[in-house]
Design a protein around this nucleic acid. Structure first.
Lengths: 352, 352
DNA sequence: CTGAAAGCGCTTACAG
DNA sequence: CTGAAAGCGCTTACAG
C-alpha cells in the first residue's frame, strides 16, 4: 500500500497555481480554466493524491448526511433493533469526519408509510441511503429516483438484483439453509422425518425463504445422514388458530416427524404449538434471536436459532457508504456475512 | 451523552492564562505553578473537557507505540493468526491518530524466547502492551517490570488474576463448556455415555481447560437431557501412540460412549483416532477452528467446533489500550466475548 | 477565473 | 514559570 504524502500545497506548486485553485478542481466546484484543471488533475493522479481526512474533518463545516430507512422495531418484533444499533455505532465512529446519519422509519407492513418516508429522504438530498428492499415495487420506484439524483444506495438484509445498488450486506439464504440443515441433521435420529415450514404473512419475502429451503434440502443431497422424509409446507399466515389447524393435519398424517425447520423468524409460533401439544421432543430450528424466540430457546423447545449478524449488517452498510462517498475507495459489492448457530447456552453472552 | 465543546482556548480564557500553559498542565509537562495548575484542572473537569483528537492527530509529531507479544503462528498451529489480524486491523484504524503497533513474537513452547522478547519490549518503552500470559511465572516477571515503568498491559485469551492488568479480553471457560455441553447434549442419544478429555501437553493451561470441564458438567446438572455417564480423563501428551493406547483402554472398558468432548483445540488428534478405528459415529466436539480441526469438521468426523472470536480478541485488546492511554476513558476491565458454534456448513463463510 | 488570508483545535519550539 | 507565534493540511469566504 503506497501511502501518498503529497499535499494540496505540493500540487499547487507543481502546477504553478494556488491551493485555492487546486481545491476548486479537486471538489469540482468549477470556475477553473479547463487547461488548469486538467493539469492539476494529472498531477494529482500521477502522485496518487489522497486528501488528509483528518485535516478536512478539522476544518470542514459541512456535514455529509447519510439516510437510513428501516422498519421500526416494535414491541412484538424487535428484529430490527440490532441493525439499528450497528448503524448507530458506525455513526458514532464517523462523527469525527463530519458524517451524520439521519434515521427514517417505516411500518414493516405498510407500503404507504414506506413511500411517504422515501419522499422525506429525497427532500433531504442525502449523500447516500441504506435500506432493506422489503417492498419490491416501492423500492424500485425509490431506487429510480435515487439514481436520477445520483445518490448511491446500499441494501441490507435482502437485495434486488437488477439494479445499480452500490453494495449489499447480508447473509446468503442458501448458505443459511445448509447451516440449519447441518444442525438439524446432527440433532435428529437418522430415520426421523423432517418438516420444513415457510411461515410468513402473505408470503412476503418468499424468495428469500425459498432459498433457505433449497439450501436446506441441498445439504441432505450432499452429505446429510438423515434418511427420513423431507416434508415441505407453507403456512401463509401468522394466525395462531390457522397454524394449529395446519400443523394438526400434517403431524397426524405423519407420525414420524422428529424435527421441524422454520425458514424464518416466526419459529416461536411453532414452539408454542409444540408446548401446547406436548411435543417438545421434536427438534425445532429457526431463524433470528428475537425476544420471542429466545424465550423458547431458553426453555429448550427451540433447539437452535440461526443468527444473521444484524448488527454487523447495519454497521458495515454505513461503512461501505463512507468508504465510497468520502474515501472514494472501491468496495466489494456483495458482502455476505456468515451466520451464527445459537443455543440456549451461547445466547447468554450473545448480545454482549 | 454530553458532548463537550470546550476548547483549550476557552479554558485558557477562563483561567486567565495562555493556551500554552493549559497544554502544559493537561499533559503534565510540569513547569507550571501549582496554583495555576489546580485552577486549570478544575475548569477542565467542571466543563468535561476532552481533547479534539482530530486536531491533535493533525498536529502531533510524536507517535504513541503499543507493543504486542504473541506466539508466532506456525504451519502446524495457525491458531494465533486470527488475533493477529484483529490487531493489524485495529492498527490500521488507529494509524490516523498517530498510534503505531509493534508486534513481537515468541515460540509458543519456549519460555526463554518469551523472556528474550519481553526484554526487547521493555527497551522500546511502549505506551502499552498486549499479550496472552501463557507462561505464568515468566509473565509475572514481565508484569512486575511493566508496572515499575507504569506501562499498562492488556491480557488476551487467558488471564492471571492477581495482578494489576488494565483489561482482559477473552472467553469464559465455564461458559464455553456449557455451550459445548448443550451442543453435545442435542447431538447424542439420551442414554449414551459421554467422554470428556483434557488433552494438553504437560497439562499447560490446565486451569482454563478445567473450567471448560466444570462448565460442561454443570450444564448436565441444570437441564441436560442426556442421562448417560460422564467420564472424565486426562491425556497429558500429544503423542499419537500414547493417545491411542489411552483411548483404546477407555473405549473398550466402556462400549456405550456416544460422544467425546475435548476441552481444547487438539480435537483433530481424536478425530484421527476415530477414523482409524471406524468410530465416526461418535459425536465429537472440541475447540477452535484451526486448520487441522477444520479438515475433520468438513469430513464430518468433528461435529462441532467452538470458536472464541480470536479476531475480536486482538482487535478489542488494542482498542482498550487506545481508549485508556489516548482517550483516558474508563474501560470495562474484563471483557468476556461470546463463543461461536461452528459446523461443517457454517465454517465455509466463517473467515470472511 | 484566480490568489491571499484566516481559521479549525491542538502542539511545538522559542523567547522572556 | 508563562505567553506569543508558527504550523499541521485542508476549507472558506473575500477581493480582485
Amino acid at each position: 500500500m503506497v501511502k501518498s504524502k503529497i499535499r494540496i500545497k505540493d500540487i499547487a506548486e507543481q502546477a504553478g497555481v494556488s491551493v485555492g485553485t487546486v481545491d476548486r478542481v479537486l471538489h469540482n466546484r468549477g470556475e477553473v480554466a479547463e487547461e488548469t484543471k486538467k493539469k492539476i488533475l494529472d498531477i494529482a493522479k500521477a502522485n496518487n493524491y489522497h486528501p488528509n481526512l483528518i485535516a478536512r474533518a478539522l476544518t470542514s463545516k459541512k456535514q455529509c448526511i447519510f439516510a437510513t430507512l428501516m422498519p421500526s422495531p416494535t414491541e412484538e418484533d424487535i428484529f430490527w433493533k440490532r441493525p439499528l444499533s450497528g448503524i448507530s455505532d458506525a455513526a458514532t465512529e464517523l462523527e469525527q469526519f463530519q458524517v451524520k446519519i439521519e434515521k427514517f422509519f417505516f411500518d414493516h407492513y405498510n407500503e404507504q408509510d414506506f413511500i411517504q418516508q422515501t419522499k422525506e429522504i429525497l427532500k433531504l438530498r442525502p449523500a447516500g441511503v441504506v435500506f432493506p428492499p422489503i417492498f419490491k415495487q416501492e423500492s424500485l420506484d425509490f431506487i429510480q429516483k435515487l439514481e436520477k439524483q445520483n445518490i448511491p444506495y446500499v441494501f441490507l438484509e435482502s437485495k434486488i438484483k437488477d439494479c445499480n445498488y452500490l453494495a449489499y450486506v447480508g447473509s446468503d439464504g442458501y448458505h443459511s439453509g445448509r447451516v440449519a440443515a447441518n444442525v438439524v441433521d446432527f440433532s435428529t435420529p437418522k430415520n426421523g422425518d423432517i418438516l420444513i415450514i415457510n411461515l410468513a404473512k402473505n408470503l412476503e419475502n418468499i424468495h428469500h425463504l425459498n432459498k433457505r429451503t433449497q439450501g436446506f434440502l441441498s445439504y441432505f443431497m450432499d452429505h446429510g445422514r438423515n434418511t427420513g422424509l423431507k416434508i415441505n409446507i407453507e403456512i401463509p399466515t401468522s394466525n395462531t388458530a390457522l397454524i394449529k389447524e395446519k400443523l394438526n393435519a400434517v403431524l397426524s398424517k405423519n407420525q414420524n416427524i422428529k424435527a421441524i425447520y422454520i425458514t424464518g423468524s416466526k419459529v416461536h409460533k411453532i414452539a408454542e404449538y409444540l408446548i401446547h401439544n406436548n411435543l417438545d421432543e421434536i427438534t425445532l430450528v429457526g431463524f433470528d434471536p428475537i425476544e420471542q424466540n429466545i424465550k423458547y430457546l431458553k426453555q429448550g423447545t427451540i433447539n437452535y436459532l440461526i443468527g444473521q449478524h444484524p448488527y454487523q449488517q447495519g454497521f458495515k452498510a454505513i461503512k461501505k457508504l463512507f468508504d465510497h462517498v468520502m474515501l472514494h475507495n472501491t468496495i466489494s459489492r456483495d458482502e455476505i456475512l456468515p451466520v451464527d448457530i445459537i443455543n440456549r447456552e451461547s445466547i447468554k453472552l450473545y448480545f454482549l
